[in-house]
Structure formats: structure tokens, C-alpha cells
Design a protein around this nucleic acid. Structure first.
Length: 431
RNA sequence: GGAAGGGUGUCCGAGCGGUUUAAGGAACUGGUCUUGAAAACCAGCAUGCCAGCAAUGGUAUCGUGGGUUCGAAUCCCACCCCUUCCGCCA
């Protein structure tokens, strides 16, 4: 949620920037409700004041008849206006919540993800002296991917991952855990990228997988609901990303300044209904209803939020480079960064089997947009402030394994293991 | 599933119709003292919203929402959540 003060002071800017993100919000109507709300509020508060004054005078003693009837009169007037105020606040709230976060000045303006700007390409696109296979060709041949049986048991877009692929997934997890909990590794990333930021290690987290409706909504990740799995009996939702349960961890909390930055590395099996994506990426395991993901989430103050964003991206890149996966980095345009975002990047890995770059990572900087509704604050010497939130994929396991399979495949249909992962694979160099 | 207890400020915790501008601790901030620190002592210390250039003033907030009352943290109703015990269970 945006600060209403900001909207009042910059109505045209807010309209324009919202439009750039593809959100049509009627700022004039919002400000109209705001004005009405404030006027009503003043009248209500004036009445409440008279009521409080009356109570002040009758404190500790029985009020007389005149005071009682005056009190009754005030009570009815207050109640009447309060009802009107509540009604307007409801409308006001809906509109205010509909306003997206403002993109930072350097976010490219665009109409769709096609307008995302390529920042750089890292790594040579793998070349083979044979025809590259897709991950599903290899995966099925090696009996690593079994969608047929998963279809019988669970339906489409579910999979049984089997054998060495499972070993590989756990190796990646172990690898990332060891790196992100190591201040030395973080120091190296900071140095290489000339960042001015703490090297505080990430705390590994296994979060709950279900979220309450109000908390999900406060994160501004409940929508689109069609893409969420709902547990109807309990008014709970299955999270669609560890971000949803990590970012909301400190809802209604006041953090200590000295504890910042709070950095979490969450591992979660995430669930998405993929509504509206029927037929898209139906082959392989690129787009599943259920997938495992390692996610970074951090809470900082307003001064270090942007630097933290850069830091998380730098970590993503370092991890990709350490595995030797070719990728490109995209600065997401206004249309693609998402409602709560002020800025964001995607990393697309090169997938030789498909001859294309495909999204494997995202990094999102939300400024104080999420924390305003979550009421996640930090106490500083100059007062209590809203924290800034950042989230970024460490590795989406499924898609990372796709990239490994396709980039490091051999003519025999085997897969070489990146050196960095070998210690976590019992020293094996190939599967 | 059965039963009981409980949700109060950053935290702990008292209050259970009108001396509450929410007691008392702790933490935190500043100061005194000290070679420095600790301790002790002194002082300060919630947030949102509204008005105002500001100083400041007003108002709301004791899980949430309704209700009773001239007046609600306190009484009533509904809901949410947490804890404990029993049962079942990985």
C-alpha cells in the first residue's frame, strides 16, 4: 500500500506511474473519498471531544438528568456519523489498496515483458557436436522424470522426480545453504560488486506452507486468487512462494535497528494453479503446480533497501556463475515488475534443448509498500519507520536442474555435474 | 474430537464500569558518577489518523467485529488466535 500523503502530494505522478505498470486507478476518485473522509473525521472527532468533555465533568460522580440526556444526544450523533465514516473508509480503502507501488525512476517503461531490458549476457551459450536434447527427453530416458504416473495420481503438471535427479536437487540445496550461511562467500560477492553492505549471513528457514487470508492479502500476494490453492475448510491458502511466508514473518512487529538486515534463506515446496496457462510449457517440468524453491528474503531500513536489492542480484549471479550456467540478466520493465514492486530483475538461463533463454530467477524490491500493510517496523533513534523488503530466488530447483541437464548433457544422454556441486554428490562428476 | 485457561504498549505484567493522562518492572535513549565499563541514580521513552508552516492541539487504539451504558481495557454476544490437559496420530 502507498502512503496516502504521497498520493495527495503527487496525484498526477501516481496516475501516470500506475498506468505505466498497467494499473488503471482513479486517483481523483480516491482523493475525493479521502477529502470526504477527512471532513467527516473532523466532525466525528469534534463530537467525540464534546462527549469526552462531558465524561470528564461527570468523573467519579453520578451524572444528573441533564448530563445524561446530553450524553444520549451525543451518543446518537456520534454513532450516526461514525457509520457514514465507516462506509466511506471502506470505499477509500479499496481504492487505496488498488494503487500499485511506484516504479523507481530508472525502471524502463514498457507494455509487456517483451519490453524488459537486457542488461547483460554471461557465459557462452553451450554448443554441442550433436543435437542438443530437451530436459524431458533426457529425463524420461534416464527415468528421472515420471509425469505419466504423477498424472494418474495427482493430475497434470505434477511429477515424480526420481533417482539421481533427486540426489542432484539435494546437492543444490546443500550447496546454497553452505554458501549463503558463509560470511566469507558474502564478503567475496560484496567485494566483487563494490557494494557497501553488511555481510551478515542468511538464516536458513523451513517455513510453514499455508497462509491465512488476511496475512496473504497484507503481503499483496493473494491476487490473483485463481492462481492460488485454497484450503477451504480452514480459510487457508497454500503459499505460491517462500516469499509469501517469509515476508509476512514479522507482521505486526517492531524490529530492533541493530538486528537489521534480517536475511532469510527459505526452502519451500510451492504451489501454483497456473490458471490461464493451459497448454503452456506442457512438456517437461518447467511449469509445475508444485515445485521446490530456495528463496532469499531480507528486511532492511530505507537507506539500504536498494543496495540490498543489488546484493541479492549479485548473489544470484555468483551462484549461477559458480554452476557455469549461461544466463542473461533483464531489468524488468514497468509492466512486468509486479504490483508491490518498485524495481525488479529476472535472470533467464540458457536452455540449449529449447534454444532459448527461460526465466529461472527473479529479484524484487518492494520498498515500504508491503511493510505498510504488514506493519513491520523498525525502531530507530529518529523514530519508528517502516522496513524495506526484498526478495529474490536463490534457486528454483526444478528449473535449475533443467538448466543443468540441458547445458551439461553429453552425446550419450548423460549429464555432467558442475564442479561446485560435486562435493555434495559424493564426488560424482556425471550422472 | 473433549475440557480448561488466556490474548493489555518494544517485551514482561497489574487492572476487571467513571481518581487509567493503562500501575510496576525490563529494554531502549540521554545524563550524573567512573581511567573505561558495569552497577547505582536522574530524566526521557507507544503508534496511527486529523488540523497546523511550526510549536502544538484533537481523536482513536488493551485480539477482531458488534452490542449494552451518560460513560467500556473492564459487562454481553459472535468470531479469530494462543496455551495446557485428555483422546487420536507422523
Amino acid at each position: 500500500m502507498l502512503d496516502i500523503q504521497f498520493i495527495r502530494n503527487n496525484p498526477d505522478l501516481v496516475s501516470e506511474k500506475s498506468m505505466q505498470k498497467g494499473y488503471v486507478v482513479d486517483i481523483q476518485q480516491l482523493l475525493g473519498f479521502d477529502k470526504e473522509r477527512r471532513e467527516l473525521m473532523q466532525r466525528v472527532e469534534e463530537l467525540r471531544r464534546s462527549r469526552n468533555d462531558l465524561n470528564e465533568h461527570t468523573k467519579g460522580q453520578k451524572p444528573n438528568e441533564e448530563q445524561i440526556s446530553k450524553g444520549r444526544e451525543l451518543r446518537d450523533k456520534v454513532a450516526d456519523l461514525e457509520h457514514k465514516l465507516t462506509a466511506i473508509e471502506k470505499e477509500y480503502d479499496i481504492l487505496l489498496k488498488a494503487v500499485p507501488n511506484m516504479p523507481l525512476a530508472d525502471v524502463p517503461v514498457g507494455k509487456s515483458e517483451n519490453d524488459n531490458q537486457e542488461v547483460k549476457k554471461i557465459g557462452e551459450a553451450s554448443s554441442f557436436n550433436f543435437e542438443a536434447k530437451t530436459h524431458w527427453q533426457i529425463g524420461e530416458a534416464r527415468d528421472w522424470i515420471d509425469k505419466e504416473r504423477a498424472g494418474k495420481v495427482s493430475g497434470s503438471r505434477f511429477v515424480y522426480l526420481k533417482g539421481d535427479l533427486v540426489i542432484l536437487q539435494f546437492a543444490i540445496i546443500q550447496y546454497v545453504l553452505s554458501k549463503l550461511t558463509d560470511a566469507g562467500f558474502l564478503d567475496q560477492v560484496i567485494r566483487l560488486n563494490n557494494l557497501k553492505i553488511s555481510n551478515k549471513p542468511f538464516q536458513p528457514i523451513l517455513p510453514p506452507y499455508v497462509v491465512r487470508t488476511d496475512v496473504y492479502d497484507a503481503m499483496d500476494r493473494l491476487e490473483p486468487r485463481d492462481d492460488r490453492y485454497k484450503l477451504d475448510q480452514d480459510q487457508l491458502w497454500l503459499q505460491g512462494s517462500a516469499e509469501h511466508v517469509l515476508g509476512s514473518m514479522h507482521i505486526n512487529e517492531e524490529l530492533r535497528y541493530d538486528d537489521l538486515p534480517l536475511r532469510y534463506l527459505g526452502y519451500a515446496t510451492s504451489f501454483r494453479r497456473e490458471a490461464g496457462n493451459y497448454g503452456k510449457d506442457s512438456e517437461g517440468i518447467f511449469r509445475m503446480h508444485q515445485f521446490d524453491k530456495l528463496e532469499m528474503e531480507s528486511f532492511t531500513d530505507e537507506n539500504t533497501g536498494l543496495e540490498e536489492h543489488k546484493f541479492l542480484i549479485a548473489i544470484q549471479e555468483q551462484l549461477m556463475q559458480n554452476l557455469g550456467i549461461p544466463y542473461r540478466l533483464l531489468e524488468k520493465c514497468t509492466a512486468d515488475i509486479g504490483k508491490p514492486n518498485a524495481k525488479g530483475v529476472d535472470i533467464d538461463a540458457w536452455l540449449p534443448g529449447q534454444g532459448n533463454y527461460r526465466e529461472t530467477h527473479t529479484a524484487d524490491y518492494m520498498t515500504d509498500y508491503q511493510s505498510r500493510r504488514l506493519k513491520t517496523r523498525v525502531k530507530t533513534n529518529t523514530g519508528t519507520k517502516l522496513v524495506h523488503t526484498n526478495d529474490a530466488t536463490a534457486f528454483a530447483l526444478g528449473r535449475t536442474m533443467i538448466a543443468i541437464i540441458e547445458n551439461f548433457q553429453t552425446a550419450e544422454g548423460k549429464v555432467n555435474i558442475p564442479e561446485a556441486l560435486q562435493p555434495y554428490m559424493g564426488g560424482r562428476k556425471q550422472i
